[in-house]
């Protein structure tokens, strides 16, 4: 089980969190202007690196706030934790 440090509550078990996938994926500024391919890419394609990955976690069983984590997807080492809106 991962041990993740909530920026507001401190270190808690993974079971207190909900996973949110890749961080920093902005909603398209002009969705109606996108081609089908661009829209498909926005909806369905995310980074999937073997190594450091910037991702979102929500402390659902605690403060219920979202934050960002950089975690190595091979070793599970947590490299950075930050607050942020996307």
């Amino acid at each position: 089980m991962l041990l993740i440090e909530c920026p507001w509550c401190g270190p808690r078990d993974e079971t207190e969190y909900h996973y949110g996938g890749q961080a920093h994926v902005p909603y398209p500024e002009e969705p109606a202007g996108l081609t089908d391919e661009e829209w498909g890419r926005y909806l369905f394609v995310r980074e999937n690196p073997k190594g450091p990955f910037a991702e979102r976690w929500c402390h659902t069983a605690g403060c219920r706030r979202w934050f960002n984590v950089v975690r190595d997807t091979l070793t599970n080492e947590i490299l950075r934790i930050s607050t942020g809106s996307t």
Binding site: M1, L2, T15, Y19, G21, F53, E55, T73, L74, T75
Partner: peptide
């Protein structure tokens, strides 16, 4: 397991 991972292991929970 909920998160992305290449480590061939997961959580006991």
């Amino acid at each position: 397991d909920s998160y992305n991972g290449y480590g061939q292991r997961g959580g006991l929970h």
